Simulated scan of single mutants.
Amino acid sequence: MPTNTPPGSAERADAARNRAKILATAERVVARRGVEALTMNAVARAAGVGVGTVYRRFGDQGGLVEAMMDRRESQLQRGMVDGPPPLGPGAPPADRIRAFLHAYADVLDTYGPLMAAAEATMPTPRRYRTGPYAVHHRHLATLIADARPDADAYYLADALLAPLAAGLFTHQRNHDGMSLDRIKAGLDDLVTGFGLSETGPPHR
C-alpha cells in the first residue's frame, strides 16, 4: 500500500535521531569524565557511530559544543516558562529568582569551562544584549520589578547575573576552591541584600 512519506523524509528522521543521540552521549561524556574528555572521537565511540557522522552533524568540536549549550539553554528556558515552581510560574518572585540563579549555577558547574571559552570570543554588546543573556536578564528584571517595584530592576538584573559570568564562576570553582553550595549561598545573600527576599504573591 503506498505511503504519503515524502522522499528523503526517512533519511531526515534518521539524521535527527542521530543528532539527538550524539548530543545526549556528549552530555554523558561531560557528566562522567569532565569537559576535558569532550572530543569528537570520544563522543563517536561512546555513541557507537563513526567519527565522520559526528563531523557531518556538527561540523567540528565548536559546533558540537554550541549545540550542547543550545540544548541545555532550551531545557533551562522551558523550566522558566512552564516548569514546576519555584523555577517555573507559581512561586513568589524572590523564590523564583533564587531558583533561577541556582539552576544556572548548576549549568555552569558542568559546562563552565566551555562557556567561558565561548564568552571570551563574543563581542561585548552581543554577549550582554542578545541570546541567552538577554533572556535571563529580562526574566530576572521582571521578577525583581514584582518583588521590589521601587528598585532599578534593569540594573539589579545585571548585578545578579555578574557573579554567574562563566569565567569568574570557573575561576572560583577551580582556582579558589569554592564549593557549589558556597556560591549558591553567596547568590542567596545577594538576593537578600538587594531587598528581594520578602515573601510576595506567586508570580505567573
Score class of each variant (00 low, 15 high):
residue 44 A to H: 12
residue 18 N to H: 11
residue 34 G to Y: 10
residue 155 Y to N: 08
residue 46 A to M: 08
residue 6 P to Y: 06
residue 138 R to Y: 00
residue 137 H to W: 06
residue 140 L to D: 04
residue 72 R to E: 15
residue 117 A to S: 12
residue 94 A to W: 01
residue 192 T to C: 09
residue 110 T to A: 10
residue 182 R to E: 15
residue 82 D to I: 14
residue 186 G to L: 12
residue 8 G to N: 01
residue 84 P to E: 15
residue 31 A to E: 15
residue 165 A to F: 09
residue 13 A to I: 12
residue 134 A to M: 12
residue 175 H to Q: 15
residue 197 S to E: 14
residue 96 R to L: 06
residue 12 R to S: 13
residue 45 R to W: 09
residue 7 P to L: 06
residue 56 R to V: 09
residue 72 R to N: 14
residue 132 P to Y: 04
residue 74 S to W: 09
residue 152 D to E: 03
residue 8 G to M: 10
residue 18 N to E: 11
residue 80 M to P: 04
residue 190 L to D: 14
residue 108 L to A: 09
residue 128 Y to Q: 08
residue 35 V to L: 02
residue 131 G to Q: 03
residue 147 A to V: 05
residue 93 P to S: 05
residue 165 A to E: 13
residue 181 D to I: 09
residue 128 Y to M: 07
residue 131 G to W: 12
residue 20 A to T: 11
residue 78 R to Q: 14
residue 120 A to W: 08
residue 143 L to V: 07
residue 138 R to N: 07
residue 62 G to A: 15
residue 95 D to M: 05
residue 92 P to A: 08
residue 133 Y to L: 03
residue 107 V to F: 04
residue 171 H to K: 08
residue 73 E to K: 08
residue 12 R to H: 11
residue 116 A to M: 04
residue 50 G to L: 05
residue 64 L to M: 13
residue 23 L to Y: 00
residue 80 M to R: 14
residue 200 G to W: 08
residue 201 P to R: 07
residue 82 D to N: 13
residue 168 L to W: 03
residue 195 G to S: 04
residue 100 F to S: 01
residue 145 A to H: 13
residue 136 H to N: 11
residue 85 P to T: 03
residue 108 L to F: 02
residue 190 L to Q: 14
residue 136 H to S: 11
residue 121 T to Q: 14
residue 63 G to W: 11
residue 15 A to C: 09
residue 60 D to Y: 08
residue 159 A to C: 14
residue 83 G to Q: 07
residue 48 G to D: 06
residue 174 N to P: 00
residue 184 K to I: 01
residue 7 P to S: 08
residue 180 L to H: 11
residue 102 H to K: 07
residue 121 T to P: 04
residue 36 E to L: 08
residue 42 A to T: 15
residue 128 Y to N: 01
residue 45 R to C: 10
residue 189 D to W: 09
residue 120 A to S: 15
residue 155 Y to I: 06
residue 122 M to D: 13
residue 55 Y to M: 10
residue 107 V to P: 00
residue 187 L to S: 01
residue 99 A to H: 03
residue 113 P to Y: 04
residue 79 G to I: 05
residue 85 P to C: 03
residue 159 A to E: 13
residue 4 N to M: 12
residue 16 A to P: 00
residue 142 T to L: 10
residue 84 P to R: 15
residue 120 A to M: 08
residue 122 M to S: 14
residue 129 R to F: 13
residue 173 R to S: 06
residue 117 A to C: 05
residue 5 T to C: 05
residue 79 G to T: 07
residue 38 L to R: 02
residue 30 V to R: 05
residue 141 A to P: 11
residue 110 T to F: 06
residue 56 R to H: 13
